[in-house]
Amino acid sequence: MTRIGIVVGTTRPGRLGPQVARWVEKTARERADAEFELVDIADYDLPLFDEPRVPRLGVYDHAHTRAWSAKIAELDGFVFVTPEYNWSIPAALKNAIDFVYTEWNHKAAGFVGYGSNVNGARAVEHLRQICGAVQLATAYTQVNLSLWTDCQDFTTFTPAEAHDAVLRRMLGEVVALTTALAPLRGA
């Protein structure tokens, strides 16, 4: 069965990311063609990139890197849930992606962005470029959520019903891409 990780892309205290990721997971679990699991980068306690060798070599000195590598390697695709910080993604998410390389290759990625100005769109556009650099194929459809209209007091996630159809379409694209890329992964 195809396994998709729903990656919580922020580690900040009081973050909205886990609420958004649980919403994605709830909808994703309606599907019978893939298994979905939450992957919270905060659980891996990754410091600022601290490996002495380039990730492309796949040789890791630190236990935190080996644990992160094993998690990413066992997944076939990803849905990144990211806030927009200063027109980009959180540093913690970029750092987590940079820790490994081949573990991302030939897999698919979808995006759920959220923010106050353009609903996370700029963060997702930056993340698309980063994903290309680690050989992740990206879904066309993306979910963009507003901190103004999809949240109460910037603390409680209350998505508009209209986002459900977009989320389902994006999840379908991620599963389809993941399946299509399976021969490249040797699956």
Score class of each variant (00 low, 15 high):
R169P: 04
M170E: 07
A133L: 06
T156N: 05
T102I: 05
L181R: 00
V20P: 05
R22H: 14
N119P: 01
K107A: 15
E25R: 03
F49C: 13
D50A: 07
L48Y: 10
M1I: 12
T149V: 12
R185V: 13
V166G: 08
I41E: 13
A91I: 10
F154P: 02
G110I: 07
A42I: 02
A133P: 00
V20T: 05
A32M: 10
G115F: 12
R169S: 13
G132F: 02
R122D: 09
F111K: 01
R29G: 15
V79H: 04
P183F: 05
D45A: 11
F49G: 14
G132S: 04
T149A: 11
W68Y: 08
I41D: 12
A137M: 15
E37D: 06
V175S: 02
Q19E: 15
W23R: 02
E74V: 07
F154G: 05
A182F: 00
D61N: 09
F78P: 02
H64Y: 08
S116I: 15
D33I: 07
L93Y: 09
E103T: 02
R31K: 14
A67E: 15
T11Q: 15
G5P: 04
L184R: 00
P55F: 06
C131G: 01
R29N: 13
Q135T: 07
N144H: 15
E161M: 01
I89S: 06
W23I: 15
A92S: 09
V124H: 08
A96W: 09
A21N: 08
G120K: 00
I41P: 07
A160G: 11
Y101C: 04
I89L: 10
G9P: 01
P47T: 04
N119M: 09
R169Y: 01
T178L: 06
D61C: 12
T155G: 03
I41M: 13
I97P: 03
A109K: 06
L46N: 03
K94S: 14
G186H: 04
A42C: 11
A109C: 06
S146L: 04
N117P: 09
K26P: 11
P159G: 03
A34Q: 02
D153I: 07
V24L: 07
V134F: 04
G14M: 07
E74Y: 04
F80S: 02
M170W: 09
A180I: 11
D76E: 01
V124Y: 12
S146R: 05
G9E: 14
F36T: 12
V166D: 00
G186T: 02
F99A: 09
D45P: 00
A91D: 14
K71G: 11
H163I: 05
E161Q: 12
K94G: 11
V124L: 15
T138C: 10
F154N: 15
A70G: 13
G186L: 07
V175H: 01
Y140G: 08
V24R: 10
G14E: 12
P13Q: 13
R169C: 08
T178I: 12
A121F: 11
K94V: 07
L136E: 01
Q19M: 11
T179Q: 09
L48W: 06
R66I: 10
I89Q: 11
T65D: 10
V8K: 10
E51R: 00
W87H: 08
E161I: 02
V112Y: 03
S69G: 02
A176V: 06
